[in-house]
């Protein structure tokens, strides 16, 4: 049953996303870890939740997908890496020189 499978996919995605959202909120609200570790945990949870959303909500996968769609997403990711990384790098470097 395709529909039942997709319904379960949504529930699994929702469950995982809820946990991955609750962890960073609890870490920040209770300040259990040192700031550095908290930030690391936040970034990790966000990255995993991004994959969960793409996989379970947007149904993006490496199998059974048209090539163009994946290439579009990966190319956009590449462009973002250059532009965000470049901006933060250049402006961060400028900041330390002031």
């Amino acid at each position: 049953m395709e529909r039942a499978k997709e319904f379960h996919s949504y529930l699994i995605g929702f469950g995982l996303a809820t946990v991955l959202t609750a962890i960073p909120f609890l870490l920040v609200a209770t300040s259990t870890l040192s700031p550095g570790w908290t930030y690391g945990a936040l970034v990790l949870c966000a990255a995993v939740q991004l994959v969960v959303h793409l996989r379970f909500f947007l149904h993006l996968s490496f199998r059974g997908q048209q090539k163009e769609d994946l290439q579009l997403v990966l190319f956009t990711g590449f462009i973002l890496l250059i532009m965000i990384g470049g901006t933060v790098w250049v402006l961060g470097s400028l900041y330390t020189r002031m």
Binding site: T76, L80, M83
Partner: peptide, 15 residues
């Protein structure tokens, strides 16, 4: 393309 726009706003925010 909208994601790229958001990405630039994030970059400006980070900077």
């Amino acid at each position: 393309s909208d994601l790229v726009t958001f990405g630039m706003f994030f970059a400006i925010f980070a900077a």
